Amino acid sequence: MKKLSFEIQISAPPEKVWSVLWDEISYRQWTTAFTEGSFYQGTLEEGSLVKFFDPNNNGMYSRVVKNIANTEMKFLHLGEIYDGIEVPQQWGEATEAYILDENEEGTQLIIKIQTPEEFKEFFEEKFPKALGIIKNLSENQF
């Protein structure tokens, strides 16, 4: 399991960054860094299952293990989805956490990932792009 960390300073309050991260329209915008047309289904309540899809009905499903509004969201990834069919994976503690740390300049967004080796390169390439989009949306949307 590889541990990755990405962070960016955003000149906006945590509430704004949180909104950009999880509101349906802005989520679809920043996740274009991974796959154009990405979206999620389900609720983001602690303990619930959420499914992350690309436009071809492929993706992954995860459990929300932490949701502290405007502070932290953490997912435990459980498996992949192919043509809408859930396929469990033995990833162990494959997690993805979004941590918002308020400071004098706004918000430090920190993303911590534990991932199988096979996804490391993908995340290292895509997450910096995603962070740039999140920063732009947070600082420039009304």
Results as ranks from 00 to 15, higher is better:
117 E>H: 14
77 H>V: 15
113 I>R: 02
127 F>D: 10
5 S>C: 12
106 G>P: 04
46 E>C: 03
129 K>I: 15
137 L>C: 13
102 E>Y: 07
14 P>Q: 00
28 R>P: 05
139 E>W: 08
78 L>V: 10
14 P>K: 01
110 I>Q: 09
99 I>A: 05
34 F>L: 01
16 K>H: 07
41 Q>D: 13
15 E>T: 04
41 Q>Y: 06
4 L>R: 06
3 K>E: 14
21 L>A: 00
25 I>D: 14
2 K>Y: 10
25 I>A: 14
16 K>F: 08
138 S>V: 10
7 E>P: 02
40 Y>T: 02
121 E>C: 08
128 P>W: 02
32 T>L: 11
58 N>E: 08
142 F>Q: 14
34 F>N: 01
75 F>V: 05
105 E>N: 13
85 I>V: 15
34 F>G: 06
5 S>A: 12
31 T>P: 02
88 P>C: 01
93 E>P: 07
68 I>D: 10
7 E>N: 10
83 D>L: 10
114 Q>D: 09
19 S>A: 09
77 H>A: 00
99 I>D: 07
95 T>Y: 01
30 W>P: 09
65 V>D: 03
113 I>E: 05
10 I>K: 00
141 Q>V: 12
105 E>C: 05
105 E>G: 08
82 Y>R: 13
127 F>K: 04
81 I>T: 07
85 I>H: 11
141 Q>N: 15
94 A>D: 11
126 K>W: 09
31 T>A: 04
54 D>M: 11
92 G>I: 02
43 T>G: 06
8 I>V: 15
3 K>H: 13
73 M>N: 04
55 P>E: 06
125 E>A: 11
119 F>A: 09
111 I>F: 01
96 E>S: 04
51 K>E: 13
92 G>W: 04
64 V>N: 03
89 Q>M: 04
7 E>A: 11
63 R>N: 01
122 F>E: 09
110 I>V: 13
56 N>R: 12
100 L>Y: 01
43 T>F: 00
96 E>M: 07
21 L>F: 07
9 Q>I: 12
46 E>S: 02
59 G>C: 04
58 N>S: 06
